[in-house]
């Protein structure tokens, strides 16, 4: 009983009986989500994983308030989510920086949009330093590499000091080096700021490397099939035995490898 209570008090976001459908570009009726129930714990790093079309991005958009659920409610800190709000930061798949603004001004956008730029000017430099982009303040987005652009996007979302940071496959389009770099940066930011992070990804390794919990979703209709706790200590070793074991387990659940016994020579 006491454990249940503590879970409730530690819950930052509750998703209750959420179902959502939409019409795709060809006019087909798509059942994106069916009966989603999920509680997100304050300060945790949660990953949502699944094949494309399992509704993971839709779920993230609902949390952000970019779309309204057909059925069910999403509650953040006791308040129903109805529209986007700076306390739910969102990092988009391709960064989506404003091409006409410098790095500095891109990062400052949140402050300007909320009309609090003047009194918080110094925050901009702080977040530029935080994501390691000192010296690139005056650069325009097209002059940046993919990894740098994504770091700008993360800083831009973080400057509003969101309670929850939503990450929509932010490393999806990056090369492996930039990807590992951003992953470590995210872990660092997560540890320092204790921001709750929800990451949507289709990369199993990434999910295991970063998360406290992994939500596995299956498509058509999008449903949660399982929630796994990842209790490995940080820093995690991508080649470690536990890591590889978890990896295989998740891949099996996603039906990406068959559940045959492991060949002997691996041991």
């Amino acid at each position: 009983m006491s454990e249940t209570l503590s879970v409730i008090s530690r819950t930052i976001l509750r998703i209750e009986n959420v179902s959502h459908t939409y019409y795709d570009d060809y006019g087909n009726h798509v059942e994106a989500l069916r009966d989603i129930n999920l509680s997100v714990v304050r300060g945790e790093f949660l990953s949502i994983i699944g094949s494309s079309g399992c509704g993971k991005t839709t779920l993230l958009r609902l949390i952000a308030g970019l779309e309204k659920p057909e059925k069910g409610t999403l509650i953040l800190n006791g308040e129903k989510i109805t529209e986007p709000d700076p306390q739910r930061g969102y990092v988009f798949q391709h960064g989506c920086l404003f091409q006409w603004l410098t790095v500095e001004k891109n990062i400052a956008t949140g402050l300007r949009a909320r009309g609090i730029y003047r009194e918080n000017k110094e925050l901009v430099q702080h977040y530029i330093d935080l994501v390691g982009l000192r010296g690139f303040e005056k650069a325009y987005p097209h002059q940046l590499s993919g990894g740098m652009a994504q770091r700008v996007a993360i800083a831009r979302a973080l400057i509003n000091k969101p309670k929850v940071l939503l990450l929509d496959e932010p490393m999806g389009a990056l090369d492996s080096f930039s990807r590992a770099d951003i992953q470590d940066k995210l872990l660092e930011l997560h540890k320092e700021n204790e921001t709750t992070m929800i990451l949507v990804t289709h990369d199993v390794d990434e999910a295991i490397y970063l998360s406290d919990r992994i939500v596995i979703m299956t498509p058509r209709p999008g449903k949660i099939s399982e929630i796994m706790d990842i209790n490995l200590p940080h820093p995690r070793h991508r080649g470690g035995t536990d890591f590889l074991y978890l990896r295989r387990t998740i891949l099996e659940k996603l039906h990406l490898v068959s559940a045959l016994p492991e060949p002997e020579y691996i041991i």
Partner: peptide
């Protein structure tokens, strides 16, 4: 649309 969505999640008003 996504650029407008970015701005909305950052707290932008319609004017912005």
């Amino acid at each position: 649309k996504v650029q407008l969505e970015v701005a909305r999640t950052l707290g932008a008003s319609t004017f912005f």
